[in-house]
Amino acid sequence: MRILFSSLVHTGHFFPLLPLAAALRDNGHELLFATGSDNHDTITSLGMTPIEAGIGLDVGAPTAAEQLGVDPDPKAERSPEELVRLIVTAFADVLPRRFVADLEPVLAERAPDLVVWEAGNLGAMIAAKRAGIPSIAHGFGRVGDDDFDVQGAEVIQRTAAEFGVELPGGRGFGDRYLDIYPESLQGKRFLAEEADLRIPLRPVPFSKPGPLPAVAEGERTRPLVYLTMGTAFGSAEVLRTAVAGLSELDVDVLVSAGPSVDAGELTGLGDRVTVESWVPQDQLLPRVDLVVHHGGAGTTLGSLGAGVPQLFLPQGADQFIHAGVVTEAGGGEQLLGEAFGADAVAETARRLLDEPGYRQVAGRIAGEIAEMPSPAEVATRVVKPG
């Protein structure tokens, strides 16, 4: 079969799809992957064909702001209501229109037998349905019942109608839905409404290959804490504050600055702090004792899969959702707003390292994830008619 995957360009939307795509490739299928050019080298290295498609939120969010008549500056202060409207307009109107425009000629020329669309890339779903090509949704995180989901469904229905596509209800809009979130943490409404279409899929961490820093190799005399703010919400100030708190403990700290923070800004942090621009996170997570991070879906799921307690410092998007559900389950803690500070980080991290209950909960969820069907198992199922 010829199968076309399509995701938004952002790492948290792109990486989760790669394990299944690779499994389908290994089964002899031809894989096309439509996304932004930043991901094309990775796609090529995996033996798949990259196709340029779509725009990122760096373009989509300001465009949505201009449509709404609000300040397009990404750093502008917004009310919760305005923020929801902005996100909904970007994800359910601006981005989908561009993906439909880019994918329509590709679908006509390449005629794939199946389209796998990342759940944030609603334009790929509309393009597939408009072309009459079978499609399947691939989740990247938890499905909630908040204002974004409710308003987003209404807007995407209108957007699709403008392209002559009538969408049924449900998160997958009538398509089967590959769900990489453990059932015990997934949204209960989604589980009830999509029970017949939901296909569990084990989340498998993916990162570009590379060597681990020396601090993560070999035997250690102190716990190792991994600190990252991901690829899109990096802040040197937040990282410095977190390091200041962690440095009060007898631990080694490994910081991944990420692409949005210059690692050169993070100097003079002490002998027990190692700063890297990037680390192979999939290899690192099973080696650490605590993960302190922003709450992105990829880092959250990777840490859960490794059975590691988490300290969440959410900054935006769906990070508050992941932080909340893991904290409520007992697998971690979160520091929000004014509660965040060096002393609070030190106190909370010490508790997460010392009290066994957090690791026990994380281990239980790791066991649940291990029991989910692997990408290789699911690859044989998705090519069969729904």
Rank of each mutant, 00 (worst) to 15 (best):
D318Y: 04
S79G: 13
S37C: 01
A339F: 02
P134W: 05
L95T: 08
A153G: 15
E347W: 00
A366I: 06
E333Q: 13
L246G: 05
G230N: 00
E166D: 14
E77P: 04
L17C: 07
L17T: 14
P223R: 11
D318P: 07
F312Q: 08
D73K: 10
L20N: 03
R287A: 11
G47T: 11
T42P: 02
A344K: 04
T274D: 10
E333P: 04
E368D: 11
A344G: 05
E154L: 13
R78W: 07
L197S: 04
A131C: 13
P375C: 13
G296T: 09
S79I: 05
K129H: 06
G337M: 08
A65L: 12
P209L: 04
T241D: 07
F14S: 02
P385N: 12
E154Y: 01
D113T: 04
D102T: 04
D175R: 07
R351Q: 13
G305T: 06
D343H: 01
D38R: 10
T241Q: 11
I43R: 01
S374K: 08
D149K: 00
K75R: 13
N27G: 14
T327S: 15
R287W: 06
H40Q: 11
R142H: 12
I365G: 00
T299H: 09
R130S: 12
V155K: 14
L8F: 05
H138Y: 12
L107V: 01
R25M: 01
V165Q: 12
R158V: 04
G305M: 09
G268M: 12
V361D: 02
G123H: 01
R85C: 02
L266N: 09
A329I: 03
G367T: 05
E355P: 06
H40D: 10
L201N: 09
E248P: 01
L285F: 15
A160T: 02
G357F: 04
A195Q: 12
G69N: 10
S45E: 14
E30V: 05
P134L: 08
P182H: 10
V115W: 01
L352F: 08
A242K: 09
R364L: 13
S303A: 15
P286F: 09
R171H: 14
E377Q: 15
V261K: 01
F33P: 06
G386H: 14
